[in-house]
């Protein structure tokens, strides 16, 4: 290779290497519009314990004594978790609806809700409605069983569980004004047992 060829190769090689490096830098930060629109988002996300639909019966002594000592309870309950209807409306129009059931293969775990719906930016009235679909037999109110109180006393866990269940009907109505790509989160507060609309805290 002559001197001039060598010089040309050095310059060309250096230029190409530099171009490759610059290409890596640019390829490393390519601006892409992942959310190109100007719409806002209603995000409904929460978990809540569904009501349990149970049929309880008092165990006869013979059946109870057949059980291991640590499993001998007055009542045995069998059942499943309730299903719920979730509906999201904007300015009166239904924009999302779903039938919710408990998580897990046996649907016996919490309700896990995650829905995102795009809506136009600007002011909106958002309504979220969560309604139990199944009817649940009244718990010891209409025709109280004589053993109800005793059973309740022996099963505080069941009572605690019932206290943590989502109410049969929840409703949220909120007026929000959303900027483009802003998100309003609708979630469930287990302590106050109601739905809440949460927006980003204002920038400092």
């Amino acid at each position: 290779m002559s001197a001039s060829q060598s010089w040309r190769a050095t310059v060309g090689g250096g230029t190409l290497a530099l171009a490759a490096m610059v290409g890596i830098v640019h390829g490393s930060q390519v601006p892409v519009a992942l959310d190109p629109g100007t719409r806002a988002v209603v995000r409904v996300a929460f978990s809540a314990r569904p009501e349990r639909i149970e049929i309880c019966r008092t165990l006869p002594d013979s059946e109870r004594l057949a059980l291991p000592a640590h499993m001998r309870q007055e009542t045995a309950c069998e059942g499943r978790t309730a299903h719920y209807h979730l509906e999201v409306r904007r300015d009166g129009q239904v924009i999302s609806a779903d039938l919710l059931r408990g998580g897990g293969l046996r649907s016996d775990r919490q309700l896990y809700v995650f829905h995102e719906v795009a809506i136009p930016r600007g002011p909106s009235e958002i309504e979220v409605l969560l309604v139990r679909v199944d009817s649940v037999p009244p718990r010891g109110s209409a025709a109280p069983d004589a053993a109800d109180e005793a059973r309740a006393a022996e099963d505080p866990m069941r009572l605690r569980r019932q206290a943590g269940e989502v109410p049969p009907r929840l409703e949220l109505r909120a007026r929000v004004t959303l900027a483009p790509r802003e998100v309003v989160l609708v979630t469930y507060d287990a302590e106050s047992r109601r739905l809440l609309a949460v927006q980003a805290p204002p920038s400092p």
């Binding site: 930060q29 390519v30 892409v32 519009a33 959310d35 790509r181 998100v183 989160l185 949460v198 980003a200």
Partner: peptide
Amino acid sequence: FHAPAMVRLD
């Protein structure tokens, strides 16, 4: 609470 309009992707 904010979806970015533009993201610089690698």
